[in-house]
């Protein structure tokens, strides 16, 4: 996982509530054998017309949002099936930050496992951000995880809460496996003992 650094990026607006994981990554793409490459299918059914061409009506297809790393979305983002493909697709598309009022539990957890900072704000703050983006598409926000702060050119700055454990993992770029491997010596020790206690498993 990439360590999460302070960055200034375009904030894209997806003003829809209850976006579920089936919309984030439709189930016809789950049979793929790769973990990478889901980004091109992100929001597939909204993003593309039946003939495969881009749907110009879909928010993220607006030229102003090209290259956005921040996604500002409506309530209860990521609900529905627990598939981990949803955060894979979001990260692969290029987003590393989501701002919303609320998320489905498993989705929220999976975001952090995949290097995505999911920020929770109150409704009032979300509305301000949405208005600012709508009035000035292509606007760039600064996300400073270290100081738990987002600043915007329109002055809608705010601080956010984040679990210290999650924060330090994002900042260091450590995934769950990386965390476990901090205990590599204990695992090795255990294994040595295991070989003595249960030699038939290693014969």
């Amino acid at each position: 996982m990439e360590p999460y650094k302070k960055h200034e990026s375009i904030a894209a607006l997806l003003n829809r509530s209850n976006v579920d994981t089936d919309q984030i990554i439709p189930k016809q793409f789950l049979k793929r054998v790769e973990r990478s490459g889901f980004g091109v299918h992100l929001f597939h059914d909204w993003r593309f017309n039946d003939d495969g061409s881009d749907n110009p009506e879909f928010e993220l297809n607006k030229p102003a949002f090209k290259g956005a790393k921040i996604l500002v979305a409506g309530d209860n983002f990521g609900c529905g099936s627990s598939r981990e493909h949803a955060p894979w697709a979001i990260a692969d598309y290029g987003f590393n930050t989501i701002i919303s009022t609320s998320y489905a539990d498993i989705f929220y957890n999976n975001c952090f496992k995949n290097g995505i900072l999911a920020i929770k704000v109150d409704k009032e703050q979300l509305d301000k951000l949405m208005i600012e983006i709508a009035a000035n598409e292509g606007v760039r926000f600064v996300v400073d995880l270290e100081n738990q702060q987002v600043t915007t050119p329109g002055g809608n700055d705010f601080n956010f809460e984040i679990d210290p454990f999650r924060k330090s993992n994002l900042v260091s770029g450590l995934d769950d496996i990386g965390l476990t491997l901090k205990h590599a010596d204990k695992i090795a020790q255990y294994e040595q003992q295991h070989k003595k206690d249960y030699p038939w498993l290693w014969a």
Binding site: E84, K113, D176, I177, T180, L181, H183, I187, E191
Partner: peptide, 11 residues
């Protein structure tokens, strides 16, 4: 992702 975790760490 747990399958990956077990392959990498045996835990």
């Amino acid at each position: 992702s747990e399958v990956e975790h077990v392959m990498a760490t045996q835990t």
